Simulated scan of single mutants.
Amino acid sequence: MGGRAGLAAPLPALRGHQEGPARRPQQGLPVLLSCRTSLYAAGEPLVVRAQEAGELRPDATIGDVIRMVSGVAGVAFEDDEQRDRVVAMTIDGLRPR
Protein backbone atom coordinates (compact mmCIF):
# COMPACT_ATOMS: atom_id res chain seq x y z
CA MET A 1 0.00 0.00 0.00
CA GLY A 2 1.16 3.50 -0.71
CA GLY A 3 0.89 4.67 2.87
CA ARG A 4 -1.63 6.71 4.71
CA ALA A 5 -1.78 9.61 2.22
CA GLY A 6 -2.59 7.32 -0.69
CA LEU A 7 -5.58 5.80 1.08
CA ALA A 8 -6.82 9.00 2.65
CA ALA A 9 -6.56 11.29 -0.36
CA PRO A 10 -10.02 10.57 -1.83
CA LEU A 11 -11.89 10.84 1.49
CA PRO A 12 -12.36 14.65 1.56
CA ALA A 13 -14.15 14.42 -1.77
CA LEU A 14 -16.65 12.05 -0.20
CA ARG A 15 -17.79 14.44 2.54
CA GLY A 16 -21.19 14.94 0.94
CA HIS A 17 -21.86 11.19 0.69
CA GLN A 18 -24.75 10.10 2.88
CA GLU A 19 -25.50 6.56 3.90
CA GLY A 20 -28.36 5.97 6.24
CA PRO A 21 -31.92 4.76 6.63
CA ALA A 22 -33.26 7.25 4.09
CA ARG A 23 -30.97 5.78 1.42
CA ARG A 24 -31.37 2.07 2.18
CA PRO A 25 -34.66 1.50 0.32
CA GLN A 26 -32.76 2.25 -2.89
CA GLN A 27 -30.24 -0.56 -2.34
CA GLY A 28 -32.01 -2.81 -4.83
CA LEU A 29 -31.82 -0.37 -7.73
CA PRO A 30 -29.96 -1.94 -10.69
CA VAL A 31 -27.50 0.95 -10.98
CA LEU A 32 -26.57 0.66 -7.30
CA LEU A 33 -26.17 -3.09 -7.55
CA SER A 34 -23.95 -2.59 -10.59
CA CYS A 35 -21.83 -0.04 -8.72
CA ARG A 36 -21.56 -2.34 -5.70
CA THR A 37 -20.51 -5.25 -7.91
CA SER A 38 -17.87 -3.10 -9.62
CA LEU A 39 -16.56 -1.75 -6.32
CA TYR A 40 -16.20 -5.21 -4.82
CA ALA A 41 -14.63 -6.61 -8.01
CA ALA A 42 -12.06 -3.80 -8.14
CA GLY A 43 -11.38 -3.74 -4.40
CA GLU A 44 -11.04 -7.45 -3.66
CA PRO A 45 -7.74 -7.89 -5.56
CA LEU A 46 -6.34 -4.81 -3.79
CA VAL A 47 -7.26 -6.25 -0.40
CA VAL A 48 -5.65 -9.59 -1.29
CA ARG A 49 -2.45 -7.93 -2.56
CA ALA A 50 -2.22 -5.72 0.53
CA GLN A 51 -2.66 -8.77 2.78
CA GLU A 52 -0.06 -10.75 0.84
CA ALA A 53 2.35 -7.82 1.22
CA GLY A 54 1.72 -7.73 4.97
CA GLU A 55 0.23 -4.23 4.80
CA LEU A 56 -3.37 -5.14 5.69
CA ARG A 57 -4.61 -7.21 8.59
CA PRO A 58 -5.40 -10.75 7.46
CA ASP A 59 -8.97 -10.73 8.77
CA ALA A 60 -10.03 -7.63 6.80
CA THR A 61 -12.42 -8.08 3.89
CA ILE A 62 -13.34 -5.72 1.08
CA GLY A 63 -16.76 -5.38 2.72
CA ASP A 64 -15.09 -4.27 5.97
CA VAL A 65 -12.97 -1.69 4.16
CA ILE A 66 -15.91 -0.31 2.16
CA ARG A 67 -18.06 0.04 5.28
CA MET A 68 -15.22 1.69 7.17
CA VAL A 69 -14.57 4.20 4.39
CA SER A 70 -18.29 4.89 4.04
CA GLY A 71 -18.59 5.48 7.75
CA VAL A 72 -15.70 7.93 7.88
CA ALA A 73 -16.81 9.68 4.68
CA GLY A 74 -20.33 10.21 6.01
CA VAL A 75 -19.26 12.03 9.18
CA ALA A 76 -19.26 15.79 9.56
CA PHE A 77 -15.95 16.84 11.08
CA GLU A 78 -15.29 19.97 13.12
CA ASP A 79 -12.33 20.89 10.93
CA ASP A 80 -9.74 19.47 8.54
CA GLU A 81 -7.39 18.55 11.38
CA GLN A 82 -10.04 16.40 13.04
CA ARG A 83 -10.84 14.72 9.71
CA ASP A 84 -7.16 13.98 9.10
CA ARG A 85 -6.74 12.58 12.62
CA VAL A 86 -9.79 10.30 12.30
CA VAL A 87 -8.69 9.10 8.85
CA ALA A 88 -5.19 8.36 10.20
CA MET A 89 -6.62 6.42 13.16
CA THR A 90 -8.90 4.48 10.82
CA ILE A 91 -6.09 3.53 8.47
CA ASP A 92 -3.85 2.58 11.40
CA GLY A 93 -6.57 0.14 12.44
CA LEU A 94 -6.25 -1.68 9.12
CA ARG A 95 -2.58 -2.48 9.66
CA PRO A 96 -1.66 -5.97 10.78
CA ARG A 97 -0.74 -6.41 14.43
Rank of each mutant, 00 (worst) to 15 (best):
L14R: 08
Q51N: 05
G54R: 08
P25E: 13
I66F: 08
A42T: 11
T61I: 06
A8Q: 05
T61V: 08
C35V: 15
A53K: 14
L11K: 06
G20C: 08
E55Q: 12
R23D: 14
Q51F: 03
P10F: 13
G54N: 05
D59R: 10
D84C: 01
L14I: 05
E78W: 02
D84Q: 10
F77A: 05
V65H: 04
L29C: 03
R85W: 01
A73D: 09
G16D: 13
V75I: 10
E19Q: 11
D79W: 07
V47Q: 00
L33W: 02
V65F: 08
A22K: 13
E52V: 11
P30W: 08
G3K: 05
P96I: 02
P12W: 03
L33G: 15
G63R: 12
A22E: 15
L94G: 01
R15I: 00
G28I: 01
L29N: 12
R97I: 03
R24F: 15
Q18A: 14
G3M: 06
R36T: 13
E44A: 10
A22D: 15
V86L: 04
P58S: 15
L56A: 07
P10D: 07
D64G: 01
E19I: 13
E44M: 00
G93P: 05
G28Y: 06
T37P: 00
R49I: 02
G74H: 06
A88T: 09
V48Y: 04
G6R: 09
A73H: 07
P45W: 10
I66E: 05
G20E: 10
G6Q: 09
Q27G: 10
P25D: 14
P25N: 13
R57W: 00
S70A: 11
V65R: 00
L94N: 01
V65L: 15
V69E: 01
L39E: 11
V75N: 08
A8C: 07
M89R: 09
I62C: 07
E55R: 08
S34L: 14
M89E: 08
R23N: 08
C35Y: 14
T61D: 12
H17C: 09
L14S: 08
A22F: 09
P21I: 03
P30V: 04
A73P: 04
Q82E: 14
T61G: 15
P12N: 10
A9K: 13
R97D: 09
E78M: 07
T90C: 02
V75E: 13
P96T: 02
L32N: 15
L7A: 08
E44Y: 04
S34M: 10
M1S: 10
H17E: 13
V86W: 05
T37N: 14
A5H: 12
P58Y: 00
F77S: 09
V87S: 05
E81D: 14
D79C: 12
E81Q: 11
S70R: 07
T61Y: 13
A76T: 11
V69Q: 04
Y40A: 11
D59L: 03
G20I: 10
L29I: 00
A22Q: 15
Q18G: 07
A5E: 15
A60R: 13
A41P: 06
V69D: 04
A42N: 14
Q82H: 12
A50F: 02
E19M: 10
